[in-house]
Design a protein around this nucleic acid. Structure first.
Length: 718
RNA sequence: GUCCGGUUAGCUCAGCUGGUAGAGCGCCACAUUGACAUUGUGGAGGUCACAAGUUCAAGUCUUGUACCGGACACCA
């Protein structure tokens, strides 16, 4: 190419993402177009995504990269198609999660949350979170997210708290809320109860002990809980024990001396398990608790909140359960009560999902939501296709969980969260919702009512996020944008979040919070291993962005990543799209050079007009269809091949001789053709690779474009 | 235990409603300083886990087997 042509100087060197990305994002943000109120043209149909608010307690990880890439691609596509496109951003205080992060920080500083004034702790975590929030929001910008920052919301903002409190009150009024002493999952390290979803089960092999318990042999994996066991349970049909009657009392020698045991016949006794006889510890086992409730039996706490034995254990008092176990077995052995030990007992124990410490089931007064009625409605909405899942398998998983749902413990003994607006009686434990802070006397026993010191499970408030962000019940955005269009989030939080949003959204408004659910899979490392800080294989998006550019990262996350499947993040793959960005750059350079002397009146000849139909229109139509089908992976790959294999390798190559043609008409037609290809390609590429395409767009001659900003250009095909 | 997946090129994975297989990376050969800190052309490499079935036709649908994984729930 000859030097005197006046193509922008920019194109004389390769595309350098770092040089342009910041400026480009500023152009978008300053334009005001992230806010749908400012978008050009008539826009009737809304397209809304509520962003999963990232936890404001650290940096973004690769998974976030995927969230923002998919959602931004959807947003840009729909915005270009003329929709009133609204992406509602936010940040999550992430209750327990953040408190755990902060506790680790305290630990490093040689401090501890215990013993701190809760208010001081709260304020410190608030500062920490706000700093992280700002940092994180800039990272979201760097990924190119075209969300409306003017509507940004934090999960501890007043509006959110108001929504949550109203729901809490309404639940009480509708008798869907109760405070009860029930078995909860207690983490002895973190000193809080956890929902079932916040525990994980660890498969392990442990010892299983058989002890002589009066005339029976009982089996247990947890001898340290057995001090208070005074009920012996067996199946009513078990003929081996037919001679023992329900309620019969038996004197027997036990760990710390003689006790009186009572025979209980209950179907929970499994004749196949061990000897078919068990003793129960209602305070520390859900199953035992249920049996005790059925027969109205006594409960007694054996293990304290820190995991140590209480005075009932006598000489073992104060020992941790781990230390006590062997010693108790020894003692029983000395007393001749140890029958045998099974060394190879396989069981799975519930553990805290954060610290992996064994969960100690405990009885505690907590707030519970009756979820069955809510789940039924949610299920109905899914069956009626008011909410659809992009992946059918997600729908099956969803239904299965909803059909087997249990009541939801929403109390947490955590400082960092939304305080529960309720009073609890210091005498009888009766609880009452109190939004106005007026209740002082117990309505049941006249006892003194005190503020519940607990906070809400963070998912209880997150579950109302689509309501809070749109300003239910009076906000304009609620009227204009609820139900929102698509909920895009990770498949790991389908129960934690998606299910709860559907339940609570339906409960408050009668309408589903979103019409479609797109669940993406997990991002793993190159070898397919889960990324974790302890493995040291965490890839920060920023790292990749620096090396390859944001557009390359986005393409690498999209291509070959079918919806819902896990994907492995491989830098080699990202590099391929860095090259692609440069290819687009050079296609532009070639086209601008070849058309710099183009006549404004240049028209397409028949052959070139036909080419547009056969190749350009055909490809864009196909890509549009794939976008409509939520196959961004296929659309992204398609656009890549169209631009590289057809536009660059075929069309440009075959244009070279025509551009040198003596026939001015042929030459002009080719110039027009290339211009069409360039502008259309940039538009179609834009949702996937917004930075490089917008950078180029800003350099194109005015006559080539409709809008000054590519982000608000019209999609080539309706 | 219940429920979901997965098994396709050396590696990581696509392949939507059935018509004898694709991408990126890697590998080999050739060409080229051309819009391209390269790119282009060509190539090697796959009985699509296994078995049976439906069909004119099956990675693609059905059933079963093997191995790998995930979620949920329980355990005395």
């Amino acid at each position: 190419m000859n030097e005197q042509n006046n193509i922008p100087e920019l194109f004389l060197k390769p595309y350098d993402p770092a040089e342009h990305e910041k400026n480009i994002y500023k152009i978008w943000e300053d334009s005001g177009y992230f806010n749908p109120d400012n978008l050009p043209g008539e826009r009737d149909e809304a397209f809304t995504i509520v962003m999963p608010p990232p936890n404001a307690n650290g940096s973004l990880h690769a998974g976030h990269g995927l969230v923002f890439t998919i959602e931004d691609t959807m947003m840009r596509f729909e915005r270009m198609r003329g929709k009133k496109a609204l992406w509602l951003p936010g940040a999550d205080h992430a209750g327990f999660e953040t408190q755990v992060v902060y506790e680790k920080k305290l630990q490093k500083e040689g401090r501890s949350r215990f013993g701190m004034d809760p208010k001081d702790l709260y304020n410190e975590i608030m500062d920490f979170t706000m700093t992280n929030k700002t940092f994180m929001e800039n990272q979201i910008r760097e990924l190119g997210a075209s969300c409306d920052w003017s509507r940004s919301l934090f999960t501890l903002d007043d509006r959110v708290i108001k929504t949550v409190y109203d729901t809490f009150k309404k639940l009480e009024e509708d008798e869907l809320l109760y405070r009860g002493a029930r078995i909860v999952n207690w983490c002895p390290k973190h000193q809080t109860s956890l929902s079932n979803l916040e525990t994980e089960h660890d498969e392990r092999t442990s010892k299983f002990y058989y002890f002589q318990y009066g005339p029976f042999v009982i089996g247990t994996a947890r001898p340290e809980t057995k001090f208070g066991d005074k009920y012996v349970v067996m199946h009513p049909e078990d003929e081996r024990y037919a001679e023992y009657k329900h309620g019969q009392e038996i004197e027997l020698e036990w760990i710390n001396g003689p006790i009186t045991a009572t025979v209980i016949k209950d179907e929970a006794g499994d004749p196949e398990m061990g000897s078919g006889v068990m003793t129960i510890t209602p305070w520390h086992s859900g199953v035992d608790f249920d049996i005790a409730k059925r027969h109205d039996l006594d409960y007694e706490q054996i293990i304290d909140w820190r995991g140590k034995l209480l005075p009932i254990a006598d000489e073992f008092e104060g020992m941790t359960i781990k230390d006590a176990r062997e010693k108790i077995v020894e003692k029983l052995d000395e007393k001749g009560l140890l029958v045998k030990i099974d060394e190879e007992y396989k069981n799975s124990v519930p553990c805290c999902y954060k610290c992996s410490r064994e969960i100690e089931p405990q009885i505690r007064e907590q707030w519970f939501v009756k979820t069955k009625p809510l789940a039924e409605k949610a299920l109905e909405a899914v069956v009626n296709k008011e909410v659809t899942f992009v992946n059918e398998r997600d729908e099956r998983v969803f239904k299965h969980w909803m059909e087997n749902i249990e009541d939801w413990n929403i109390s947490r003994q955590v400082v960092w969260g939304i305080p529960i607006p309720a009073k609890v009686c210091s005498e009888c434990g009766h609880g009452q919702v109190d939004l106005e802070d007026t209740i002082t006397t117990c309505e049941k026993c006249e006892g003194k009512m005190e503020q519940d010191p607990d906070t809400f499970d963070t998912w209880f408030s997150s579950g109302q996020w689509p309501l809070a962000t749109t300003g239910y019940p009076d906000g304009d955005d609620f009227k204009d944008y609820y139900p929102t269009s698509t909920m895009e989030t990770g498949k790991d939080i389908i129960f934690f979040w998606v299910a709860r949003m559907i339940m609570l959204g339906l409960y408050r408004t009668g309408e589903v919070p979103f019409k479609k659910v797109y669940l993406h899979g997990m991002v793993r490392d190159k070898k397919g291993l889960k990324m974790s800080k302890s493995k040291g294989n965490v890839t920060a998006p920023s790292e990749i962005q620096e090396r390859f550019g944001t557009d390359a990262l986005r393409m690498g996350l999209l291509v070959n990543n079918a919806p819902g499947n896990d994907m492995n993040l491989d830098p080699d793959k990202i590099n391929a799209y860095k090259k692609f960005a440069n290819k687009i750059w050079n296609i532009t350079r070639f086209t601008l050079d070849a058309t710099s002397d183009m006549d404004e009146d240049a028209t397409l000849n028949d052959e070139d007009a036909q080419n547009i139909q056969e190749h350009l229109i055909a490809h864009v139509t196909e890509i549009t269809k794939q976008m409509n089908d939520d196959r961004f992976d296929m659309a992204a790959e398609n656009v890549y091949h169209f631009v590289w294999d057809y536009f660059a390798s075929t069309l440009i190559e075959e244009s070279k001789p025509l551009l040198a043609s003596e026939d001015a008409g042929v030459r002009a037609s080719r110039q027009r053709l290339l211009t069409e290809y360039l502008t259309t390609s940039l538009k179609v590429l834009h949702p996937f690779m917004p930075f490089v395409t917008e950078t180029i767009w800003q350099e194109l001659p005015k006559e080539m474009k409709g809008q000054d900003i590519l982000m608000v250009e019209s999609w080539p095909i309706v």
